[in-house]
Design a protein around this nucleic acid. Structure first.
Length: 155
DNA sequence: GCCAACGTTGGC
DNA sequence: GCCAACGTTGGC
């Protein structure tokens, strides 16, 4: 099992929104970066644990834990002209973008990006690397355990 | 809203 | 295949 961090815009889909969905499951649509897509396509497996990260707000940070619950499959928004994620260059017979489904596990105490930067045990975490813009990053098991400790989670 | 850092595009 | 121009991300 691998560990990941996935960034979401809380105004579009926050952890509470995910928890409120009847299925508590959502397709992780909208990834338009090849490296992030390749992580989903080539490395993610059902059961992988994911830090759910709120990006773009006033106080970015980790807000919950979700799990991967499907393999990669074509992101439907790439074919929808009314979607902001529409990609006219992608054809249904050769889809360019993929998504996986993730399922809500829990909403955690909020762990701000600031607090993460100040935690020496998180040094080297990809999220914290200078200039990092990837919306999906792998998380080292040692960093995962350190984040769990900071969140007060025993898992 | 600014802008640093990074990714993508397309002309050559 | 290079690289300038442009676009995007996301913290601040």
């Amino acid at each position: 099992m691998r560990y990941w961090l996935m960034k979401a815009e809380p105004e579009e889909l926050g952890i509470a929104d995910l928890a409120a969905l009847p299925s508590q499951t959502v397709g992780w649509y909208g990834v338009r970066n090849y490296q992030a897509r390749n992580f989903m396509r080539d490395q993610m497996q059902i059961g992988d644990r994911v830090l759910f990260y709120h990006a773009g707000g006033k106080q970015p940070g980790v807000a919950g834990i979700v799990e991967v619950c499907s393999g990669a499959y074509p992101d439907p928004t790439q074919f929808d002209p009314s979607s902001p994620y529409y990609d006219p260059k992608s054809k249904p017979e050769a889809p360019r973008w993929q998504q996986v489904d993730v399922r809500f596990l829990k909403q955690t105490r909020y762990l701000s990006l600031n607090a993460m930067r100040e935690a020496p045990e998180l040094e080297g975490m990809l999220l914290l690397a200078r200039g990092n813009r990837l919306s999906i990053t792998p998380v080292e098991p040692s960093h995962w355990r350190a984040v769990m400790a900071l969140l007060g989670e025993t898992a």
